[in-house]
Each structure stands twice: as structure tokens, then as C-alpha cells.
């Protein structure tokens, strides 16, 4: 099983390489993660890079982001605003936005 995944990942990466080299990777696309994260950028600045005094949320480890968002939602981590937004997303959605923001 593990082997198969590794093999497929390798194949996909290879294909991506071809596409990039061929210059086919072009503009004009919006992923689910980008759309989700754009709703965080409203308060956390472009690319989640912060907007005084709201903190930067870019470049965070995906697991850490999902963890703190779940903690906001359960109010284990106290917040004035975040608990209400964090409660609105599934774990899968949190992962997608976290992955997008990590690369910013």
C-alpha cells in the first residue's frame, strides 16, 4: 500500500515536471484551498501576512494550524473573534486552507 502511494506520487511529480518544463502551467485557476483561505485574508492581510494588529498566519505548519483552529472552535484556546470563524469549517476544509496559507 505504502509502496503504491509512493509510486503514484512519484509519477504525479514526474508529470508535473514535464508540464512545468513544457511551460503549460499557466495562470487562470482557483483552488478550493485558495477560495477558503481568501476568507481568512479578509482579516489577516494578503497571503495571510498580517494586518496590524491582526496576526500573520502564513507559513504555519499544517498540523499546527488545524490544531489551533480546532482549539479556537472548542474555546480551549481563548479568542475574541476566531472561535466563531473556526466553528464554521470541517477538518478537511481547515487542512485545505492551511495548506494554501503554508505556501504563502
Amino acid at each position: 500500500m505504502t509502496c503504491k502511494i509512493v509510486a503514484q506520487t512519484g509519477l504525479a511529480a514526474g508529470l508535473l515536471g514535464i508540464l512545468l518544463v513544457g511551460g503549460v502551467a499557466s495562470a487562470g485557476d482557483v483552488s478550493r484551498g485558495a477560495l477558503l483561505a481568501s476568507h481568512c485574508e479578509t482579516c489577516h492581510g494578503m497571503g495571510g501576512k498580517g494586518a496590524m494588529p491582526n496576526p500573520a498566519i502564513n507559513g504555519m505548519d499544517v498540523a499546527d494550524m488545524v490544531d489551533i483552529m480546532k482549539a479556537f472552535a472548542s474555546k480551549e484556546e481563548s479568542s475574541t473573534m476566531m472561535y466563531r470563524h473556526a466553528q464554521g469549517y470541517t477538518e478537511e476544509e481547515l487542512k485545505m486552507m492551511a495548506e494554501y496559507l503554508k505556501g504563502k
Partner: peptide, 14 residues
């Protein structure tokens, strides 16, 4: 891929 900042649907062009 999105992490690397590369659009998911690499073949598309709007």
C-alpha cells in the same frame, strides 16, 4: 501543488 504555489489544474487557462 497548491502549497508550492502552483495552480492545481495546470492545464487550464482562463
Amino acid at each position: 501543488l497548491t502549497v508550492m504555489g502552483i495552480p492545481t489544474a495546470v492545464l487550464a487557462k482562463a
